[in-house]
Amino acid sequence: MNVSGERLDSEWVRGWCKQTSAELAVLMSSFLKTHGFPPGENAVVLATDESHGATDALVDLTPIPSDLTTLYWVVCEVSLPDVEHGFFIHPASTVAEHFREYGSVQIDDEPPAIVFASDGGGHLFAVAGSGRVWKSITASWFDDFEVVAASIREFLEQTGRTVVVQT
Protein backbone atom coordinates (compact mmCIF):
# COMPACT_ATOMS: atom_id res chain seq x y z
CA MET A 1 0.00 0.00 0.00
CA ASN A 2 1.32 3.44 -0.79
CA VAL A 3 1.76 6.27 1.66
CA SER A 4 -1.59 7.89 0.80
CA GLY A 5 -3.30 4.58 1.59
CA GLU A 6 -4.73 4.32 -1.92
CA ARG A 7 -3.86 1.13 -3.78
CA LEU A 8 -2.79 1.18 -7.41
CA ASP A 9 -5.71 0.41 -9.71
CA SER A 10 -5.23 -1.82 -12.78
CA GLU A 11 -7.58 0.34 -14.88
CA TRP A 12 -5.46 3.38 -14.09
CA VAL A 13 -2.33 1.44 -15.13
CA ARG A 14 -4.00 0.45 -18.43
CA GLY A 15 -4.79 4.13 -19.06
CA TRP A 16 -1.20 5.05 -18.26
CA CYS A 17 0.04 2.42 -20.74
CA LYS A 18 -2.23 3.73 -23.50
CA GLN A 19 -1.32 7.39 -22.90
CA THR A 20 2.42 6.72 -22.55
CA SER A 21 2.46 4.53 -25.67
CA ALA A 22 0.70 7.30 -27.65
CA GLU A 23 3.19 9.92 -26.45
CA LEU A 24 6.04 7.52 -27.18
CA ALA A 25 4.80 7.10 -30.78
CA VAL A 26 4.90 10.89 -31.23
CA LEU A 27 8.42 11.06 -29.77
CA MET A 28 9.72 8.19 -31.92
CA SER A 29 8.18 9.62 -35.14
CA SER A 30 10.49 12.64 -34.94
CA PHE A 31 13.42 11.04 -33.14
CA LEU A 32 15.69 10.46 -36.18
CA LYS A 33 15.16 14.00 -37.48
CA THR A 34 15.69 15.53 -34.02
CA HIS A 35 18.66 13.43 -32.89
CA GLY A 36 20.33 12.40 -36.15
CA PHE A 37 20.25 8.68 -35.39
CA PRO A 38 17.44 6.12 -35.22
CA PRO A 39 15.81 5.31 -31.91
CA GLY A 40 16.21 1.98 -30.13
CA GLU A 41 13.33 -0.29 -29.18
CA ASN A 42 11.12 1.89 -26.97
CA ALA A 43 7.96 0.20 -25.76
CA VAL A 44 5.44 -0.35 -23.00
CA VAL A 45 4.86 -4.11 -23.22
CA LEU A 46 1.56 -5.37 -21.84
CA ALA A 47 1.39 -8.44 -19.63
CA THR A 48 0.90 -11.90 -21.14
CA ASP A 49 -0.01 -15.30 -19.73
CA GLU A 50 3.72 -16.02 -19.49
CA SER A 51 4.46 -12.79 -17.62
CA HIS A 52 1.51 -13.49 -15.27
CA GLY A 53 3.20 -16.81 -14.43
CA ALA A 54 6.43 -14.94 -13.69
CA THR A 55 4.50 -12.50 -11.47
CA ASP A 56 2.96 -15.43 -9.55
CA ALA A 57 6.45 -16.90 -9.07
CA LEU A 58 7.75 -13.51 -7.87
CA VAL A 59 4.89 -13.21 -5.38
CA ASP A 60 5.75 -16.68 -4.04
CA LEU A 61 9.44 -15.74 -3.77
CA THR A 62 9.37 -12.26 -2.24
CA PRO A 63 7.47 -9.95 0.07
CA ILE A 64 6.32 -8.03 -3.03
CA PRO A 65 4.29 -4.85 -2.39
CA SER A 66 0.71 -5.16 -3.69
CA ASP A 67 1.06 -2.16 -6.03
CA LEU A 68 3.96 -3.87 -7.79
CA THR A 69 1.81 -6.98 -8.23
CA THR A 70 -0.94 -4.80 -9.74
CA LEU A 71 1.57 -3.18 -12.10
CA TYR A 72 2.84 -6.58 -13.28
CA TRP A 73 -0.70 -7.86 -13.93
CA VAL A 74 -0.99 -5.09 -16.55
CA VAL A 75 2.59 -4.45 -17.69
CA CYS A 76 5.19 -7.06 -18.60
CA GLU A 77 7.99 -4.51 -18.96
CA VAL A 78 8.80 -0.96 -20.03
CA SER A 79 11.86 -0.27 -22.15
CA LEU A 80 12.61 3.37 -22.89
CA PRO A 81 16.30 3.56 -23.86
CA ASP A 82 15.78 6.88 -25.69
CA VAL A 83 13.84 8.71 -22.97
CA GLU A 84 16.26 10.93 -21.06
CA HIS A 85 19.18 8.66 -20.08
CA GLY A 86 17.07 5.54 -20.45
CA PHE A 87 14.41 4.00 -18.26
CA PHE A 88 13.45 0.37 -17.76
CA ILE A 89 10.82 -1.45 -15.68
CA HIS A 90 12.18 -4.97 -15.55
CA PRO A 91 9.98 -8.01 -16.25
CA ALA A 92 8.91 -9.95 -13.15
CA SER A 93 11.20 -12.82 -14.18
CA THR A 94 14.22 -10.49 -14.10
CA VAL A 95 13.14 -9.07 -10.74
CA ALA A 96 12.96 -12.63 -9.38
CA GLU A 97 16.44 -13.45 -10.75
CA HIS A 98 17.88 -10.31 -9.16
CA PHE A 99 16.12 -11.05 -5.87
CA ARG A 100 17.65 -14.55 -5.82
CA GLU A 101 21.10 -13.10 -6.54
CA TYR A 102 21.06 -9.93 -4.42
CA GLY A 103 18.06 -10.20 -2.08
CA SER A 104 15.99 -7.23 -1.05
CA VAL A 105 17.34 -3.75 -0.52
CA GLN A 106 17.48 -2.38 3.03
CA ILE A 107 16.59 1.32 3.13
CA ASP A 108 16.55 3.23 6.41
CA ASP A 109 13.57 2.15 8.52
CA GLU A 110 11.59 0.87 5.53
CA PRO A 111 10.35 -2.69 5.18
CA PRO A 112 12.57 -4.58 2.67
CA ALA A 113 12.46 -3.07 -0.82
CA ILE A 114 12.35 -4.91 -4.16
CA VAL A 115 14.37 -3.59 -7.12
CA PHE A 116 12.07 -3.45 -10.13
CA ALA A 117 13.50 -0.84 -12.49
CA SER A 118 16.67 0.96 -13.56
CA ASP A 119 17.86 3.83 -15.69
CA GLY A 120 20.44 3.90 -18.46
CA GLY A 121 23.15 4.84 -15.96
CA GLY A 122 22.63 1.71 -13.88
CA HIS A 123 20.81 3.44 -11.03
CA LEU A 124 18.23 1.15 -9.48
CA PHE A 125 14.63 1.80 -8.47
CA ALA A 126 13.16 -0.16 -5.59
CA VAL A 127 9.70 -0.20 -4.07
CA ALA A 128 9.41 -0.74 -0.34
CA GLY A 129 6.58 -2.30 1.61
CA SER A 130 5.44 1.25 2.43
CA GLY A 131 4.80 1.78 -1.28
CA ARG A 132 7.47 4.45 -1.65
CA VAL A 133 9.83 4.23 -4.62
CA TRP A 134 13.54 4.75 -4.02
CA LYS A 135 16.44 5.36 -6.42
CA SER A 136 20.03 4.31 -5.73
CA ILE A 137 22.48 7.20 -5.40
CA THR A 138 25.04 5.20 -7.41
CA ALA A 139 24.80 2.22 -9.74
CA SER A 140 24.87 -0.20 -6.82
CA TRP A 141 22.56 -2.49 -4.85
CA PHE A 142 24.41 -1.70 -1.65
CA ASP A 143 24.79 2.10 -1.51
CA ASP A 144 22.31 4.65 -0.28
CA PHE A 145 18.90 5.15 -1.86
CA GLU A 146 16.80 8.33 -1.95
CA VAL A 147 13.03 8.53 -2.18
CA VAL A 148 11.81 9.62 -5.64
CA ALA A 149 8.06 8.94 -5.42
CA ALA A 150 5.46 8.36 -2.73
CA SER A 151 3.98 5.47 -4.74
CA ILE A 152 4.30 3.45 -7.93
CA ARG A 153 1.48 5.56 -9.39
CA GLU A 154 3.46 8.76 -8.75
CA PHE A 155 6.55 7.06 -10.21
CA LEU A 156 4.62 6.15 -13.38
CA GLU A 157 3.17 9.66 -13.62
CA GLN A 158 6.70 11.10 -13.44
CA THR A 159 7.85 8.72 -16.18
CA GLY A 160 4.91 9.64 -18.39
CA ARG A 161 5.67 13.36 -17.95
CA THR A 162 9.29 12.71 -18.93
CA VAL A 163 8.13 11.20 -22.24
CA VAL A 164 5.80 14.18 -22.88
CA VAL A 165 8.51 16.75 -22.08
CA GLN A 166 10.85 15.14 -24.59
CA THR A 167 8.30 15.31 -27.48
Rank of each mutant, 00 (worst) to 15 (best):
M1W: 07
M1A: 13
N2W: 08
S4G: 02
E6T: 13
R7G: 13
E11C: 06
E11W: 06
W12A: 10
R14N: 09
C17S: 13
Q19I: 10
Q19N: 12
S21K: 06
S21A: 15
A22I: 04
A25R: 12
A25S: 15
V26I: 12
V26Q: 13
L27K: 11
L27M: 15
S29K: 11
K33F: 12
G36S: 03
G36I: 01
F37N: 08
P39M: 01
G40T: 05
G40F: 10
N42A: 09
A43Q: 10
V44W: 04
L46E: 14
A47G: 03
E50W: 01
T55V: 09
T55A: 11
T55D: 05
D56R: 11
V59E: 14
V59H: 06
D60Y: 06
D60Q: 13
L61I: 03
P63N: 14
P63G: 15
I64L: 15
S66G: 05
S66Y: 10
L71P: 01
L71M: 09
W73Q: 14
V74C: 08
V74M: 08
V74Q: 10
V75G: 07
E77N: 07
V78H: 05
P81Q: 05
P81V: 02
D82N: 15
D82E: 12
V83H: 06
H85V: 15
H85G: 11
F87L: 12
F88S: 11
H90D: 14
H90P: 00
H90L: 15
P91D: 12
P91F: 07
A92K: 03
S93M: 04
T94W: 09
V95D: 08
V95H: 03
V95F: 02
V95C: 09
A96P: 02
E97H: 06
E97V: 08
H98P: 00
E101M: 10
E101H: 07
Y102I: 04
S104H: 13
V105L: 05
I107G: 06
I107P: 01
D109E: 14
E110Y: 09
P111H: 04
P111M: 07
I114G: 08
F116I: 06
S118M: 12
S118H: 11
D119S: 02
D119G: 05
H123C: 14
H123I: 03
H123W: 02
V127N: 02
A128N: 01
G129A: 02
S130L: 05
G131P: 01
G131I: 01
R132M: 12
R132F: 04
W134D: 03
K135H: 04
S136D: 04
S136M: 00
I137A: 13
I137E: 15
T138I: 00
T138Q: 11
A139Q: 03
S140I: 02
D143E: 11
D143A: 08
D144T: 00
F145H: 06
V147F: 02
V148E: 10
V148K: 03
A149R: 03
A149F: 02
A150P: 00
I152H: 01
R153Q: 14
F155N: 06
F155Y: 12
L156C: 06
L156K: 02
E157A: 11
Q158H: 11
Q158P: 00
T159Y: 07
T159N: 08
R161I: 10
T162R: 13
V165D: 15
V165Q: 15
